[in-house]
């Protein structure tokens, strides 16, 4: 490109930069600032520079319990979505021979992504409830004598809903990475005597690491930043790191909610930078 037109990229990114400044950078900066404000019942907020909200927040045992529970859910969902996402993508890329059929099946997997999350959660009610389809089938076939109560509004249903809603975020990036792998590589490996499993472990897995990293990034941030899936699917019995924040907002304790937000944001960004350190996602995306 000629030097004369070198100002064009700056012009092209100006709208993006403006939106991100106004609706991302400034709001996040304000959250950080407010987290140091002083909060008093009745009087509300007073500008200050105090760590009171952080101390208040961290000295509360509920905080630690909620964060621990959120990390536990994140880890379980990460493992499940990775295992499911990897094998679904692997099946579509390496086992379906017709490209058109593979694309069709890929679309079948992605269509639910474009529909409402809330509706998709409501849809589990008639399946998992006490008089739902699964309990009906179990009771009438005599497997259990009483309907199982842990199917809905439990840790089980929370994990199920996370996997249900978020596995797509694993499938799509892993599928994209795998689709770029040269099949000849695998044929050579098999011809040279590698077992099917060794070929997957030593070729497919390393070459799809960008997709896995992106998928993990999505799943971690979706589960850690969630408060409404856990609220609906646990029937209000379980909470996430965000639940405390939502409660604080309702009593207008903005500083403590902000302190919680800052801590969560730091954890999420640390995990993200860890993922980016392992895999150079940017080099793969911007080419």
């Amino acid at each position: 490109m000629s030097g004369k037109s070198s100002w064009i990229p700056y012009l092209q990114v100006t709208p993006l930069v403006l939106v991100l400044l106004l609706f991302f950078v400034v709001p996040i900066a304000l959250v950080v600032i407010v987290s140091f404000f002083r909060y008093q019942m009745l009087t509300g907020l007073t500008p200050a520079f105090t760590f009171a909200s952080y101390l208040d927040f961290l000295s509360n045992p509920t905080t630690w319990w909620l964060y621990f529970s959120t990390l536990k859910f994140t880890l379980i969902v990460l493992v499940l979505t990775f295992v499911i996402g990897f094998w679904i993508a692997y099946f579509l890329v390496f086992h379906v021979r017709s490209l058109i059929i593979a694309m069709g099946l890929f679309l079948v997997c992605t269509v639910p992504f474009w529909t409402s999350d809330i509706i998709r959660m409501i849809a589990w009610r008639p399946v998992l409830g006490r008089e739902g389809l699964i309990n009906d089938a179990l009771v009438s076939s005599g497997v259990v004598s009483h309907p199982l109560s842990w199917l809905l509004y439990s840790n089980f249903s929370v994990i199920l809903a996370y996997v249900y809603l978020d596995t797509l975020f694993m499938i799509v990036p892993i599928f994209n990475s795998m689709a770029r792998i040269d099949r000849a590589l695998l044929e050579v490996a098999v011809d040279a005597g590698a077992s099917r499993w060794a070929a997957i472990r030593d070729i497919v897995l390393p070459l799809s690491k960008t997709g896995i990293a992106l998928g993990a990034l999505f799943v971690v941030t979706l589960v850690m930043g969630d408060f409404f899936v856990i609220n609906v699917m646990s029937g209000g019995l379980a909470g996430s790191a965000m639940t405390g924040m939502a409660n604080d907002l309702q009593v207008l304790n903005y500083p403590r909610a902000a302190a919680n937000a800052v801590i969560l944001l730091v954890i999420v960004l640390l995990i993200a930078s860890g993922i980016f350190r392992l895999v150079d996602v940017r080099r793969e995306l911007v080419r």
């Binding site: 990114v13 993006l16 930069v17 991100l20 609706f23 991302f24 950078v25 400034v26 709001p27 996040i28 900066a29 304000l30 959250v31 407010v34 990034l217 999505f218 941030t221 850690m224 930043g225 408060f227 965000m242 924040m245 939502a246 907002l249 903005y254 909610a257 902000a258 937000a261 969560l264 944001l265 999420v268 960004l269 993200a272 940017r282 911007v286």
Partner: peptide, 22 residues
């Protein structure tokens, strides 16, 4: 700008809405 965009993607939605509201 790339990392800023990614950060905007992964920042928890509720955290961002608090900031915008404030």
């Amino acid at each position: 700008l790339f990392y800023l965009t990614i950060a905007s993607l992964i920042a928890p939605g509720l955290v961002l809405s608090i900031g915008i509201l404030v």
